[in-house]
Simulated scan of single mutants.
Amino acid sequence: MLLWMVALLFVWLSPQAQPYLVFEGDILILQCRGRKNAALSQVKFYRDEKLLHFSKNNQPLFLGTATANSSGRYNCTGRVKYARNTDSWDSGTAMVQVQEWFLPPVLTALPSHELCKGSPVTLRCQTKLHSQKSAWRLLFSFHKEGRTLQNRSRHPELHIPAAKEGDAGLYWCKASPKGGQVQKRSPQLELRVWAPVSRPLLTLRPTSLVVGEEVELLCEVQRGSPPILYSFHLNGDILRNHVAPHGGPASCLFRVMSEQHAGNYSCEAGNRVSRETSEPVTLSVDGPLPAQNLPSAPVEEQHQLYVNARPAQPAQQEKDISVIYAEVKHPQLSKDPDKGLNRRSTTR
């Protein structure tokens, strides 16, 4: 059976040079005492000039457990009955100062409240006893988001040997004297456990295209604490950055404007504790599609033509020119598949 030790403090409301020192948790009782212990009646108790209680026959005033709000200036008034008359009486002001038994605890994390997954961390509940209460022993409790991790232990520390992602969250501690009613709670401390990012996977859609088409780059990690910073690269040069504040993949969509966009693409993912790069993926880019049904230029404005981007051989040059001239003079011939004149050409 737990026995609670309670300090009963009678504050005699009569003028004195020194204030009454009361510790939080003490039971505070006010007693109005007349001069030379004269009997009082019609007693009124005041705190900071505000009426607290009226007692017809001067019963002690029970104020309960003292707190910081119990500090103040107290006084009482009453009636003193003499043999021939009745006189009024005022106690004067008595100062009451409530002292803290111990300071509110503060929870700290060593070496830091931000750590990598698998690292050790120690939670420490720190406070200090009043000099007049230094002989008392404090008990400590540790809590996380509604769960009690350690209850009323003499040890002011809680050790986590290898932090997991599930250990992240809000923690606080409580301190209380052994056998006392005072209990104080620390502010909350957020413990952050950072999981390193896994190697990202880069996907290209499609992996082969022609100039003018669009390509999508999708970069994704399977593990890693957000926020995650992604960056896309072509042949080692950075193309674009993207931040995923809550994790998840990142994509980059752009139109291929030249064959220079062909090459090895990669992406990089990183957070506060690690950074990883994907395997490269090759993008193939062909030349642009040929223009169809282009209008013919006048004969005098025609230039030498190249077939499949390679110049015609000198021995065939005269024949090719005559054929192309025939196409210009008779465009309907180019539509006849039997004539073999429907060829893709570019003008230099």
Rank of each mutant, 00 (worst) to 15 (best):
A244D: 09
I324N: 14
M1I: 13
K174M: 05
L234Q: 15
F54N: 10
C76T: 05
S119D: 13
G248E: 00
K56N: 07
E24R: 09
Q150P: 02
G92W: 05
S41Y: 10
F10A: 09
V121H: 02
S112R: 14
P120D: 06
E318R: 11
D167T: 04
A291S: 12
T77N: 06
W101Q: 02
Q132C: 00
Y325E: 11
Q150E: 11
G236P: 13
W194A: 09
N69D: 15
A109S: 09
G78P: 07
K335W: 12
F142P: 01
Y306T: 13
A309Q: 12
V197E: 08
P120M: 04
K329A: 15
Y74C: 02
E301Y: 13
L51Q: 13
R223Y: 02
E301Q: 15
V193Q: 15
L139D: 03
G270A: 12
K178G: 03
R47W: 06
T65P: 01
C267I: 09
P337A: 02
D87I: 11
T122C: 11
K184I: 03
G166L: 12
S322N: 09
L123Y: 06
E268A: 08
I321G: 03
N151E: 10
A66D: 05
E190L: 12
M1T: 13
R154F: 01
L21I: 11
V11I: 09
P177V: 00
A162N: 10
L110I: 13
F23I: 03
L30E: 05
G180Y: 01
P196W: 07
K319Y: 10
K144V: 04
N57A: 12
R84I: 07
V11Y: 10
Y306N: 10
L30G: 06
I27K: 04
W89T: 11
P290F: 07
G179M: 04
G166Q: 14
V215F: 00
G92L: 02
D167E: 07
K133G: 01
A269E: 14
F140L: 04
K56A: 14
G247E: 06
G166F: 00
N271L: 04
Q302M: 14
L239F: 02
Q16K: 12
C116H: 00
N264L: 15
V197A: 00
G118A: 10
R192T: 12
V299Y: 04
F142Y: 05
R84T: 08
